[in-house]
């Protein structure tokens, strides 16, 4: 059943140019970060670690959430338009499968974006001739970031499902991203969904931000992921369809 739903979600994305945004948008923080790195070479210790801090600073704090928010908004806009809610909800599939299939599509997109961010990091570093050993731990950070990204994806899916507007949830994602810096500074970053990305990606920090806190990070991420997922399913089950 779930496989069928996922197949449908993939079908719905046919002919869309969403991939262009997913490909294009991460290039911006990569370029910004690279220039920032080169401009601050007097204060930064040259090397991969600091290039990472500069690139992910922009990506995790400003670009990721709106980007995944855009993907989520697009997925739900397909249902909001042309009365598709009626068709979706009168199909013989349970609510949990509908939400999980959309989440699966977002997760797939997210993984591809994360790989792309990794590739951009490597390419930009090679381009400006960063030397010394490539930090293998960044792979772990990308993986942690993927989990954090899934939490934001689940939240954005919920928002875009409830809010019929296309732009509003994306604006909320942007505000959430900005708020994430504040939340992290206040020390409640691990419990604010939008902050998880910067913590997970270890952005703007050369040393591990989650030293000794990895378990909390994992528990918080998985917990919130489940919370947003269940919230979406519950909403779908309990609310009257407005097509």
């Amino acid at each position: 059943m779930l496989i069928r739903c996922i197949r449908c979600e993939k079908l719905k994305l046919k002919h869309s140019i969403l991939w262009l945004a997913c490909l294009g948008i991460p290039v911006i923080p990569a370029i910004m970060g690279t220039f920032n790195y080169m401009g601050n070479l007097e204060t930064l210790t040259p090397g991969w670690a600091n290039l990472w801090t500069q690139e992910t600073l922009f990506y995790a704090n400003f670009f990721y959430a709106p980007l995944i928010g855009l993907c989520c908004a697009y997925l739900w806009r397909l249902e909001h338009r042309n009365h598709n809610w009626n068709t979706l909800m009168s199909a013989p599939v349970p609510a949990w499968a509908i939400i999980l299939s959309k989440l699966a599509v977002i997760l797939r997109t997210l993984i591809l974006i994360q790989i792309w961010v990794g590739v951009l990091f490597l390419v930009s570093g090679k381009c400006i001739g960063v030397e010394n050993r490539f930090p293998v731990e960044t792979l772990g950070w990308l993986l942690r970031g993927t989990l954090a990204g899934a939490v934001i994806g689940a939240l954005q899916l919920f928002l875009s499902m409830v809010i019929r507007s296309f732009a509003l949830p994306i604006i909320l994602a942007l505000l959430g991203s900005i708020g994430s810096i504040y939340a992290a500074a206040k020390g409640i970053g691990l419990f604010f969904p939008y902050s998880l990305m910067m913590l997970g990606m270890n952005s703007n920090h050369a040393e591990n931000m989650l030293e000794g806190q990895l378990a909390v990070f994992l528990a918080s991420s998985v917990g919130m992921l489940l919370l947003f997922y269940l919230l979406s399913v519950l909403y779908l089950k309990k609310t009257d369809v407005k097509a």
């Binding site: 598709n84 009168s90 097509a243």
Partner: peptide
Amino acid sequence: NTGSLIESPSYYGHL
């Protein structure tokens, strides 16, 4: 076992 056509027709316009 039920087919339905409710309100206006629904469709994905880009497909």
